[in-house]
Amino acid sequence: MTDNPVTTDAVAKAADRLLRAQAGGAPCPPVRDLIGRDDVRAAYAVQQLLTRARLAAGERVVGRKIGLTSPAVQAQLAVDQPDFGVLFDTMRYEDGAAVPPGAVFQPRAEAEIAFVLGADLAEGELSVEQVGAAVDHAVAAIEICGSRIAGWDISFGDTVADNASGGAFVLGRERLALADFAPRDAVMTLEVDGEQVSTGTGAACLGDPLLAVRWLARQARALGDPLRAGQVVLSGALGPMVPVAPGSTVRATVAPLGAVSFTLGEERR
């Protein structure tokens, strides 16, 4: 946390910079000059302004995404906690979809386990057991991360402000209840155009993806916006994130949840 409080004006200017980047179709400079590198409160205040703008434009919240679940990435950004962003209906694509090339800035893909909630996570201790009981089912997922910050030149403050670098997500078709598998034991492989580019396991996500969801549930409730039944939770990467070029097909297998894929559309000339 920075020593000097970030002003409301600085938060508004940071949000405006990111909104202008989105509207203009081109990345912008980092916003840390306005809100600092690691001011958690200021960064989420920017994110909340962007969320309000999207809601005002008619988008709907359908869930949350968790980021920075890897110890290596946390060390890279000098932080000791994950972050989270908001999932909107406009970010969701079906398995096998063609994702428009302009839908995500500077796209990078990572494979995850997505949990769909069957109950609210608003009351009680929010233990791992309570979180698991609230999950209706899990599916394999690919998060298409994107940064409106030019060159992915991000600090913790930049990525949180920019909706935790959330761009889009693709959900698999096969559903499993938690009674049928252990998320921490899931095994992931990620391919781009048939070439394996990333591998990992459920244990790479904070030791267990359900621990990541517990962290999120507690953070969301503390901010007055708890997780609700029907929402999707992207629990965090199971392996390294990889860049995706236009025209490429990305396929993730998360055993035993099955496979999920998308193709990034070509730029028009």
Rank of each mutant, 00 (worst) to 15 (best):
Arg60Ser: 15
Val260Glu: 00
Val192Ser: 06
Ala133Tyr: 15
Ile66Phe: 04
Gly58Ile: 08
Thr159Asn: 12
Glu267Ile: 08
Ala14Glu: 15
Ala12Glu: 13
Phe84Gln: 04
Gly224Gln: 12
Ala141Thr: 06
Arg37Ile: 09
Gly166His: 05
Val242His: 01
Gly200Ala: 03
Ala114Lys: 01
Val192Lys: 10
Ile35Thr: 03
Gly265Ser: 14
Ser261Ala: 10
Tyr93Thr: 11
Cys205His: 03
Phe115Ile: 07
Val213Arg: 02
Phe84Ile: 03
Ala255Val: 04
Ala177Asn: 10
Val250Asn: 02
Val250Phe: 00
Pro243Gln: 06
Leu77Asn: 10
Leu19Met: 07
Cys205Thr: 02
Glu195Cys: 07
Val116Asp: 13
Arg32Glu: 15
Ala26Trp: 08
Gly63Val: 06
Gly124His: 15
Glu195Ala: 14
Val244Arg: 02
Gln81Thr: 09
Leu171Pro: 00
Ala103Met: 13
Thr189Trp: 00
Gln74Lys: 09
Asp208Pro: 01
Val79Thr: 00
Met241Cys: 04
Thr253Asp: 06
Asp120Lys: 10
Arg251Cys: 09
Asp162Ile: 02
Leu234Met: 11
Ile113Gln: 00
Pro71Gln: 06
Ala42His: 02
Phe156Thr: 07
Arg184Ser: 10
Lys65Phe: 03
Gly236Arg: 00
Ala150Arg: 10
Ile35Leu: 11
Val40Thr: 11
Thr69Trp: 00
Asp9Phe: 05
Glu59Cys: 13
Ala217Val: 07
Pro101Tyr: 03
Gln231Arg: 09
Glu191Trp: 05
Val86Asn: 03
Val244Pro: 04
Leu176His: 03
Phe88Arg: 12
Asp208Lys: 04
Ala204Trp: 00
Asp120Pro: 12
